[in-house]
Design a protein around this nucleic acid. Structure first.
Lengths: 209, 209
DNA sequence: GAACGTCGGGACGCAACCGTACCGTCGTTG
DNA sequence: CAACGACGGTACGGTTGCGTCCCGACGTTC
């Protein structure tokens, strides 16, 4: 019971440099072969590390990836207040575009999102992060615009998020065409126009004859 | 040289029912484990067929999937002319939404798109299909609207496609939230508003102070 | 009705990977 | 300075999948 336990010391401590090497290797490997083909052996090889080193830190491949996901997804997105919906949107689009311009991100994100569709554990972590992200946009960005009077109070947050995030994601992650920074203002302006219209009730809509 | 070759007959002919079974099994398997983990053995098991049956028809796993992709992606999208941009958009969105509501499609499409980012062969086939799709939208849908005078002639086709396709894809394939049919008209209206603004030159844009 | 020739199925060798057990190493702690 | 104890690395059995080969079955054609 009252065992005297000496704290691990000396060589008996996880070396952070190795943990980092593994993390980096996982990202590389994830981008190169995807989650489906991700193998611990390959990660170990790439990191110049033994498999045991990995299994000591994470129980399984799933654990490993889940940990990476929460580490990356946990970051809060800073949503600066520029004083106008258009300005806020430009900033947000620039941030997203910059993120998706990174080769690793552009490959890993769609891959994990696809994997989430069949892996409940990944889905949970990823959807949580995604929901945070979307809620943040909806609450902060749209919320501010409503306060300013730029948008109607009964704007549908979810629909708004789709209109904001969809185009840039489609362009960069699916269509995989570059999005020049100079195009961002135009896209932002278009989205503002869309949002102004999107506030009307969901069901009722007149059809022109 | 002048060999007399009797045409294959009798049991010596590919049985279409088996080919179909394999195709169906591939779709199921693709949805369940993704391209990365797709195995010929599993496909054969699920189809109730021998591996040889598959290898007789396709040289490899890649060939198999490429064939499926071109078969599905080859279909032309009917873009009905309703007489107005708004009407055309509603139809298009309904078609996309219906397609993405199918479980198989909603899982396979994002998976293959992610895979395309690292597999040149799949990327080629898929990007070709995607480009066709986008060009069709750009040319027909936007083209008609321009002719009608609903949009400016110098509307950027690519940017327009992003605004049209992005939101619905994000909503259904990424965010994985249901898109009610009743929401489509509103989304279409929002997109029309966006498109009207998106025609201004890409670079120049005044910033409100 | 006999011959033909491809069919589907089972088995094989090979390769990759999983997760674990063991072993010598190393640096701190008392 | 000696002992502790977790460290990283190697080696291992088991599993899975790939692509191929050979076999008996089968139905049409002559």
């Amino acid at each position: 019971m009252t065992e005297k336990r000496r704290a691990p010391a000396g060589a008996a401590v996880l070396r952070g440099e190795i943990t980092s090497a593994i993390r980096a290797a996982v990202m590389q490997e994830l981008a190169e072969v995807g989650y489906g083909r991700l193998s611990i052996e390959a990660v170990a090889r790439r990191a110049g590390v033994s498999k045991t080193a990995i299994y000591r830190r994470w129980r399984s491949k799933l654990d490993l990836v889940l940990d990476m996901v929460s580490a990356v997804a946990g970051r809060n997105i800073p949503l600066l207040d520029t004083g106008s919906l258009l300005g806020d949107l430009e900033i947000l689009l620039h941030v997203m575009a910059r993120a998706l311009r990174h080769r690793l991100a552009a490959q890993i994100i769609p891959d994990l999102l696809a994997e989430a569709a069949r892996n409940p554990q990944i889905a949970e972590k990823l959807q949580a992060a995604l929901d945070d992200y979307q809620q943040a946009i909806g609450r902060i960005l749209i919320g501010r615009a409503v306060e300013r009077g730029e948008l109607s109070p009964d704007t549908d947050r979810r629909a708004a998020v789709d209109l904001i995030v969809g185009p840039v994601y489609w362009r960069m992650a699916i269509s995989r065409a570059p999005l020049e920074s100079t195009e961002v203002p135009r896209m932002a302006a278009a989205i503002v126009a869309a949002l102004r219209v999107a506030c009307v009730g969901p069901v009722r809509d007149e059809v022109e004859v």
